[in-house]
Each structure stands twice: as structure tokens, then as C-alpha cells.
């Protein structure tokens, strides 16, 4: 606390110098991100309000057509406006598949994280190693791997044919299910790692104390263990949900152009669809949904920490 005016002035001069020094430390990173990420995103926002060129690109001139096309379509016969069911179906599918992926990684990831965290310290490192390798392995390689298993001539079908469980190979590729399996496979480590980090910090004596106080096992799990895992679960869900919602490679390879997701729809508008304003508007919509989900999660996480912690 400053005791006299001079000291206060001094103090604020020091503070200003400190602020300046630290801003200049951050400046290079901020410049790169502003130029290469924020500025292009701004260009996208601008493009979404322009007119579409006949063969792609945009033309100068303000237009809301791009945004209109995200939500409204024209009727085939009388050109009246109707909801853009095609886009809305893809949006709904993307959100549902991303949620389902998060749920599946949750179902498999939480017990796995728990399992690793409760191994004796000596072996725990080896289990960690095993979960880290897929995380650091190329996403494309992992997609190819899972695709090999479920395609018509793939391992699973051969196994089922050989055991006589089926007579005809099952066509599992190019369906929503295939995309879901693929995304769960590639994003699973993203759920395990943060949950593991949360459990690892956990002092198990707390739970035992609760049990000693005649808490039931379920009560103990719900009121003691779950709150402590909560930050890890929130982080894991965000890490899975966001890339799953905007996924491009996995649905492209496993959906075969039929089970399209939001990211593929954006790509289509900038390529064959030749409607850049629509593509830009779809991009901004996706970004807003992701940011919205993030804010919602962050609020929930904060609330969860308040009531439970």
C-alpha cells in the first residue's frame, strides 16, 4: 500500500514499466496469432456478407444471401422460402455425432483413466506410455487403422465370416455408425489423459475416510470421487467435443461423402459448391457453436467446482 503521494506515483510508474515490459514479451506470439488466425477469421466474417461469384470466390457488394442460405432454402417449384433442411440435418447430425463421440469416449475413457491411476506407481508409468502412444500417433494413420478393421474386406468381416456368424460381409463403412466408431477411436486418448491427471492428484484416503463414516460405496463415489474427477471430465469432454464437431478427415474417409459433417459441408461450399459466402457463413456458425459450447462448459465447470468443491 502506498503511504504517500510520491510513493504512489513511483509505484504506478513501476507498474506501468512492468506492464509495458510484459506486454512486449507477449507481443511476438500475439502478432503471429493476430495475423495468421484472427485476421483470416475476420476476412471470413466479411466474406459471409458478400455476394457469391459465379464460379466461386466473392464479388464486392453487401449481401445476406450467404446467411440466408444457411437457414432458409427456396422451394423447388415456387421459390418461396422454406427451412434449409439439408443444412440443418447436417448440423444436427454433426452435433449428435460429436455428443455421441464424447459419450462413448466417456464410457471407455473414465474406467481406463481410473484403472491407470490406481495401478501401483511402478507399473503406472507403463500404462501411461501405452495410452500416450496413440495420442501422439498421426490421426490419419489411426483413421486408416480403424478403417482397415471395419471395411467390407476388412479384419472384422473376415473374422465373422470365418466363424460362420455371418454369410455375407456386413457393409459397415460409409454410415453414421462408421463415422462414430472412427471418431471415438481417434479421440479416446483425449478423454483419458485429463481425467487421469485429475484422478492421479486424488488422495484416496479421503474416500476411505468417508467410507469409515458409514457412507455407502455409491454415495462415496458420487459425493467424494466424482467431484474430484470433475475438472478432468470437463476438460476431457471439451477436448473431444470440439475437434469432433469440426472433424473433417475421419468423416471424409469413413463417411464416404454420404454421412457428411459440418466441416465437410464447409469444404464443399468452397470447392464444388462454389458458394463462398455460404461456406463462410457456415464456418462462422460452426465457430460460434464451438465457442458457445466452450463458454457453457466453462460455466458448468465453475458451478460444479463451487457446489462440489
Amino acid at each position: 500500500m502506498p503511504r504517500n503521494p510520491t510513493a504512489a506515483a513511483n509505484e504506478s510508474a513501476v507498474m506501468r514499466a512492468e506492464t509495458r515490459r510484459r506486454w512486449s514479451l507477449a507481443l511476438p506470439a500475439l502478432t503471429v496469432i493476430t495475423l495468421c488466425s484472427i485476421l483470416p477469421l475476420g476476412v471470413m466474417v466479411a466474406y459471409s456478407f458478400m455476394e457469391a461469384g459465379q464460379y466461386g470466390n466473392v464479388q464486392w457488394g453487401f449481401s445476406l444471401e450467404g446467411w440466408r442460405a444457411v437457414f432458409l432454402d427456396r422451394d423447388f417449384f415456387d421459390d418461396s422460402y422454406i427451412p434449409a433442411t439439408a443444412h440443418l440435418t447436417i448440423l444436427a447430425r454433426s452435433i449428435l455425432l460429436a455428443l455421441a463421440t464424447t459419450a462413448l469416449t466417456f464410457v471407455f475413457g473414465i474406467p481406463t483413466a481410473w484403472f491407470i491411476a490406481t495401478r501401483p506407481p511402478a507399473t503406472r508409468a507403463y500404462w501411461m506410455f501405452l495410452i500416450t502412444v496413440p495420442f501422439w500417433t498421426n490421426l490419419l494413420v489411426r483413421t486408416i487403422a480403424i478403417q482397415e478393421v471395419i471395411r467390407a474386406d476388412g479384419t472384422l468381416n473376415r473374422l465373422l465370416l470365418a466363424t460362420g456368424l455371418i454369410d455375407e460381409p456386413l457393409q459397415m463403412m460409409f454410415t453414421n455408425g462408421a463415422v462414430l466408431v472412427g471418431m471415438t477411436y481417434v479421440y479416446l486418448p483425449l478423454m483419458v489423459l485429463p481425467v487421469y491427471a485429475a484422478i492421479e492428484k486424488f488422495d484416496f484416503r479421503l474416500a476411505e475416510a468417508a467410507y469409515d463414516l458409514h457412507a455407502s460405496r455409491l454415495y462415496c463415489l458420487r459425493r467424494v470421487v466424482l467431484p474430484l474427477m470433475w475438472p478432468g471430465i470437463v476438460a476431457g469432454s471439451i477436448l473431444v467435443f470440439i475437434p469432433a464437431l469440426g472433424a473433417y478427415v475421419t468423416p471424409r474417409l469413413m463417411g464416404g461423402g454420404r454421412a457428411m459433417m459440418w466441416g465437410n459441408l464447409i469444404d464443399l461450399q468452397f470447392g464444388q459448391g462454389r458458394n463462398w459466402p455460404l461456406g463462410a457463413a457456415l464456418s462462422i456458425t460452426l465457430t460460434l457453436v464451438v465457442v458457445g459450447a466452450m463458454v457453457w462448459y466453462a460455466r458448468r465447470a465453475a458451478k460444479g467446482a463451487e457446489t462440489n468443491g
Binding site: R151, A152, D153, Q171, M173, F174, G256, G257, R258
Partner: peptide, 18 residues
């Protein structure tokens, strides 16, 4: 009745996936 709408790799036919 379609499996996919795509420019498929030749391998998908050679392996009789399609």
C-alpha cells in the same frame, strides 16, 4: 441403395468393397 458418393480409390473395387 448407394454405399457412397465419392471419388473412390480403385482399391475399393479391386478389393470388392464396392
Amino acid at each position: 441403395n448407394w454405399a457412397s458418393v465419392d471419388y473412390p480409390s480403385f482399391e475399393k473395387f479391386i478389393n470388392e468393397d464396392l
